[in-house]
Design a binder for these strands. Sequence first.
DNA 1: AATGTGACATACC
DNA 2: TGGTATGCCACAT
Length: 116
Amino acid sequence: MTSIPDKNQDFFSHVFNIVRLIPEGRITNYGSIAKALGSAKSSRMVGWAMNASHSQKEPVPAHRVVNRNGLLTGKAHFNPPSRMQELLEKEGIEVKEDKITSFKELFWDPNTELKL
DNA sequence: AATGTGACATACC
DNA sequence: TGGTATGCCACAT
């Protein structure tokens, strides 16, 4: 009731929601998440949301989100940065030089997996 | 209030 | 073939 127009968090919540839905051993890119939100060109916002993930009460597997090159671009924002690769390897994802080897094979598209 | 920046992606030259 | 330019939207200063 009372509307509660928290649209700001709405966008972030959508991002966190999808990121948390990423199955273990899988990864996705910013563009796909942005597209799932309805704004394919808002891939930057996804990254912003990840930055806000630190403020989230619940942990967000942001380590499963990489750029289109399969490169761990956001690893520098982790704590410590090397934590990202460790988490990925721990889930069975092979990481080579801060980038995911079988990125295309491990790629998980929210639009394809969730929609249908 | 306005400008700049940012964990990206796509298009164009 | 790769660098430049623009889009997108929210947040920081």
